[in-house]
Structure formats: structure tokens, C-alpha cells
Design a binder for these strands. Structure first.
Length: 219
DNA sequence: CACCAGGCAAGTA
DNA sequence: TACTTGCATGGT
């Protein structure tokens, strides 16, 4: 076992001991995961919750219902999540794929092999690497590690990687050094986000962080 | 008031 | 290729 692998496991254990299981993704259905993944792009989750609540209240949180909504109506429902015009287009782009190619069923889409599913998701305008990987791991259950702002921030501050590491390289760092188990990837990313939200914001609270003993200098 | 949040695409040089 | 900018609400 390499040094990086040992460190990654050690950090995971420490976070899990501190926070316990996260039960991610916070959603009732795979489709809700997809919608949440798009709505949370560069946006606080509390705002996404309001938007999702609006969709549930009007009982339109299914692919067919959302696809049939007028864009102006969808935009007004998701308004609390911000970027509502952009995100309306992005949801519609994804729904168009599901409706036209998979008969409105996520099941069909998620039957694809991991790599071809990733390519297909990345082909949708508005779905980038993090959104695609969140959908794959948390909606489709594929063994893909999700990288986000917090991941880069936490692991570069602890000097396991450089601060400007690319998405792909950071993802590979985790996937090469951890057993490829969806359950582990699920829990690890969820723990990273919890740590990020609480302690590793742009203005860090490193004294409080469960990783402080391994911790290093921060700017 | 300023700054930030679980990105992404499009524009510029 | 490598920056830069627009998108927008709600919390601190």
C-alpha cells in the first residue's frame, strides 16, 4: 500500500469517527438527485432545498412533468436556487436526452457502462465533470469518485495535492488509492462536503477541524 | 456594505 | 491553451 493510500484511509477514518454516516445524497429518488446536482452548481444547498420543495409542492418532480413545463414556469419554481434561467436550460437539456433516447426513464440511461454513461452525461450542455460524477455515484450507483471545491481545498491545504490540480488528476488520485467501492466513495465525498461546509470555507476554521492534528499551515 | 456557496460554458487573446 | 466573465439567490 502506497503512502497516499494510507493517508487517504487515515483521513477517511478520522472524518467518519467524527461525523458518522452521512446517508447521502439527501434526496428521495434518483431523479431528485439529478435535479439537485444541477441546481447546486456554485450554489448553497439551502437555496437548492427551497427550489426542490417548490417542485415537490407542485408535484412536478418527475422527468415527464418537468419536461412538459413551460421554461418560464420552471424558472419561477427553481428561482431560489439562483441562476434560474441557466439552470432551466440545463434541466431541459438533460430531460431532452432522457425523453428522446430513453423513453423518459432514468433506468434505461443508468444501465449503461460507467465510461459510456459518463461520456453521455458530459455531452449534455450544462453537465460538467462534477455534476456528471454526482449523478453517476449518487443516482446511478456507479463507482466514481466525486470531486468538488471542498475536495481540492481540504486536500491541498493538507498538502496531499497541489492547489491547482485538475479535476481529472484529483479524481484519479482518489480512485487509484482507494478500493473501488461505491459505498466508500459515497461516504467519503459526503464527509468531505461536511468538513468543507463546517470548517474549510474560504476563511477556514482549522482549530475546529477534525483533521487539525494532521493539518498543516494554511494561508 | 462585501463576500461566499457542493459549476459550467462561452468569450477573448 | 490559458485566462476571464456571466449567471443570481439567500445567508453571514
Amino acid at each position: 500500500m502506497g503512502k497516499s493510500a494510507t493517508q487517504l484511509i487515515s483521513i477517511y477514518k478520522r472524518l467518519w469517527a467524527h461525523f458518522g454516516p452521512r446517508h447521502w445524497w439527501p434526496a428521495d429518488t434518483p431523479f431528485e438527485v439529478v435535479v439537485g446536482a444541477i441546481l447546486t452548481q456554485n450554489t448553497a444547498w439551502t437555496n437548492v432545498e427551497r427550489a426542490i420543495a417548490n417542485l415537490k409542492k407542485d408535484r412536478v418532480l418527475t422527468p415527464k412533468k418537468l419536461y412538459s413545463l413551460r421554461p418560464s414556469r420552471l424558472a419561477s419554481l427553481i428561482k431560489p436556487a439562483g441562476y434560474y434561467n441557466v439552470k432551466t436550460r440545463r434541466l431541459k437539456e438533460f430531460l431532452h436526452l432522457v425523453m428522446e433516447k430513453y423513453d423518459g426513464s432514468l433506468k434505461g440511461l443508468f444501465k449503461k457502462e460507467t465510461l459510456s454513461l459518463r461520456e453521455e452525461l458530459l455531452g449534455v450542455k450544462g453537465i460538467g465533470p462534477e455534476t456528471a460524477d454526482s449523478i453517476m455515484l449518487y443516482a446511478a450507483g456507479k463507482p466514481i469518485f466525486v470531486v468538488d471545491t471542498y475536495t481540492r481545498r481540504i486536500f491541498s491545504r493538507h498538502r496531499l495535492v497541489g492547489p491547482d490540480i485538475s479535476y481529472g488528476d484529483l479524481q484519479a488520485f482518489f480512485m487509484k488509492n482507494l478500493p473501488r467501492r461505491p459505498k466508500l466513495f459515497n461516504e467519503y465525498h459526503a464527509l468531505i462536503v461536511e468538513t468543507g461546509k463546517r470548517f474549510c470555507k474560504k476563511k477556514p476554521l482549522c482549530d475546529m477541524c477534525p483533521l487539525k492534528e494532521k493539518g498543516i499551515k494554511i494561508s
